[in-house]
């Protein structure tokens, strides 16, 4: 966007906004489109359903089922659910954000105007982020309401950290889904790929690596996102844990499990975001409306 600040007045009195301003305009209208869409309310319903289920379970089985401290409570509630909310938001709002422009031909309405494709891409990304933040905000509010009801004295600082890590995960997951959305022209195909990858694919690969390759899965986004839950355990899990099994003659094979350190987890998520955002942008810039 090297010339983004350039403006030029036409004889009709139009002054072309800068590319940055155009990002804001796209974001504004995309958000209003999201807020009227069925998918936003479905996702809001999913978030509320998860919250309601957790509220019911704690009320029914008692808060002790999560543990005795407030940290245990937040670990049981937030640590297990927040990443699912993020994954759903990324799939719902990012899965077909760009591919839909091709398949539904909405791109034809925008691209023929004096606007860079990058402004459209970034504007749509910000709108998806804003819509996701509202869903996440509602889930966070219900989490805190329950947390403060059962442990009114304090909110552990680890929860604040976990919340920030969740935001970083959301940003990187949206970057990833936007990338796949740019890669394909079919909405259903791009959604399917992101669903498979984020809901099952990463976990499956991580499991296979654990069983067969015995290496640290530092290249998987899901591995990096484990810091969201890990920060809510005290003490923080060790980076490597060696477990020796029992074999027929006594000692069995030794297994090594890995937990990402906080800097490592943050780095994985931020690198994922950077790489997928750049690749997604390049793909969208090059893709043709044929």
């Amino acid at each position: 966007m090297s010339n983004s600040s350039q403006t030029e007045e036409s004889k009709e009195g139009n002054i072309l906004p800068s590319s940055v301003s155009q990002v804001g305009i796209v974001t504004k209208y995309e958000i209003s489109n999201y807020f009227r869409s069925r998918r936003f309310f479905i996702l809001l319903g999913i978030g509320l359903a998860i919250s309601a289920l957790l509220t019911f379970l704690i009320a029914h089985y008692g808060v002790s089922s999560f543990g005795t401290t407030s940290l245990d409570f937040y670990s049981g509630w937030w640590g297990r659910s927040a990443t699912f909310i993020v994954v759903f938001c990324a799939i719902f709002f990012g899965g077909d954000a760009i591919s839909g422009e091709f398949q539904n031909k909405t791109g034809y309405f925008l691209v023929g105007n004096p606007i860079r494709r990058s402004s459209i891409y970034i504007g749509k990304w910000f709108a998806a982020l804003a819509a996701s933040l509202i869903i996440l905000g509602v889930f966070t509010a219900i989490t805190l309401a329950n947390g403060l009801y059962y442990f009114p004295s304090s909110v552990p600082y680890q929860f604040e950290e976990s919340f920030v890590f969740t935001l970083v995960y959301l940003i990187s997951a949206l970057g990833l889904t936007f990338f796949f959305s740019s890669l394909f022209k079919s909405s259903s195909f791009s959604i399917l790929v992101t669903v498979i990858l984020l809901l099952f694919g990463f976990s499956l690969i991580e499991e296979l690596i654990f069983v067969f390759a015995h290496i640290e899965p530092w290249f998987l986004l899901s591995y990096g996102s484990e810091i969201v839950g890990d920060i809510l355990t005290n003490p923080y899990p060790q980076h490597t844990i060696q477990t020796t099994g029992f074999g027929p003659g006594g000692r069995g094979p030794t297994f090594t499990t890995y937990n990402p350190t906080i800097p490592e987890g943050l780095a994985i998520m931020l690198i994922y975001f950077t790489v997928t955002a750049v690749l997604g942008l390049v793909l969208f810039e090059r893709k043709e409306f044929t």
């Binding site: 009709e12 072309l16 906004p17 155009q22 031909k105 791109g107 034809y108 309405f109 023929g112």
Partner: peptide, 28 residues
């Protein structure tokens, strides 16, 4: 330009869709 038959975001009204284009094109 009008190329083929573009689709407009279905939840927008014509006024809103045109308002978006007006803003993007810098209509005062």
């Amino acid at each position: 330009a009008l190329i083929e038959t573009p689709e407009i975001y279905p939840s927008l009204t014509p006024s809103e869709a045109l308002s978006m284009i007006a803003e993007l094109r810098g209509v005062p």
